[in-house]
């Protein structure tokens, strides 16, 4: 699904060059649920930006779904984001002016789908996250967990192949965090690849594989700590074996 090889990212300001990624290489297979962990400044955010085609990189190769994305135009990148990638953010990133229905509608609009198709997708996605009764609510009228569920519905409606989640539970209390993680589990089970950046070991443990970043490099790909592994539900093991 996602193959990165020697990815470099340098931020230049007038005075200094910051090397955010220094030859990052990693593979994520289709249907995997991978968590990415690492301390502040380890390059998690940059990785996610590049993985999501939000930012460009300076060196290395990146194959997304088998396609080299290093030479894509902004327009092509927009289209891929729109069709193949779904984002879930720590701060939800709902558009405050739009009610639930319209928020979920945003990516579908940019895809240019017919009105009836959009309506069907939106209603189904919102139902899946259990917010059918809140279609006409504004984000400000919802709790944090509900907002994140709307954000997930926005992803679901678009039916992407890959979901990139950035601290999806970072702004939520533990009860709500568990709900969200359950939801992500369900989605993953239906075959969607998920890459999740997180600080929280509990969340990371829900993934089938953990990746650790330090100073812009993957330090240990194949080392899910043994203790944690034993807590994992057996049902998730097969997917971690893929690729």
């Amino acid at each position: 699904m996602l193959q990165m090889n020697g990815i470099k990212k340098v931020y230049r300001t007038e005075l200094v060059e910051t090397h955010a990624l220094e030859g990052l290489s990693l593979n994520v297979g289709a249907g995997e649920f991978v968590s990415v962990m690492g301390p502040s400044g380890s390059g998690k955010t940059t990785f996610l930006n590049i993985a999501g085609l939000l930012d460009v990189f300076n060196g290395g190769t990146y194959l997304l779904d088998g396609k080299d994305v290093s030479r894509l135009s902004d327009r092509e990148m927009s289209h891929i984001r729109n069709r193949n990638i779904g984002f879930i953010f720590q701060s939800f990133n709902l558009i405050p002016d739009l009610h639930v229905f319209d928020n979920v509608d945003v990516p579908l609009r940019y895809r240019g789908l017919a009105a009836s198709d959009r309506k069907q997708r939106i209603e189904r996605a919102v139902e899946m996250v259990g917010l059918s009764s809140r279609l006409r609510h504004l984000p400000s009228q919802l709790s944090g967990g509900q907002q994140q569920r709307v954000a997930i519905a926005r992803v679901l409606a678009a039916e992407p192949k890959l979901i990139l989640a950035d601290e999806p539970t970072g702004n939520l209390d533990s009860l709500m965090a568990r709900e969200i993680m359950d939801l992500l589990d369900d989605i993953n089970k239906q075959g969607t690849t998920i890459v999740m950046v997180t600080h929280s070991p509990e969340c990371a443990a829900r993934a089938s594989r953990e990746i650790h970043l330090l100073d812009g490099r993957v330090v240990d790909v194949e080392r899910p700590p043994a203790i944690l592994e034993s807590f994992k539900p057996a049902a998730q093991m097969p997917s971690s074996a893929a690729r």
């Binding site: 939000l54 927009s78 984001r81 069709r83 984002f87 990133n93 558009i95 945003v106 990516p107």
Partner: peptide, 15 residues
């Protein structure tokens, strides 16, 4: 912020 979300969700520069 809103524009970044729209861009992330697939809006092109042209949009």
């Amino acid at each position: 912020p809103e524009l970044s979300v729209r861009r992330a969700l697939g809006a092109t520069r042209g949009d």
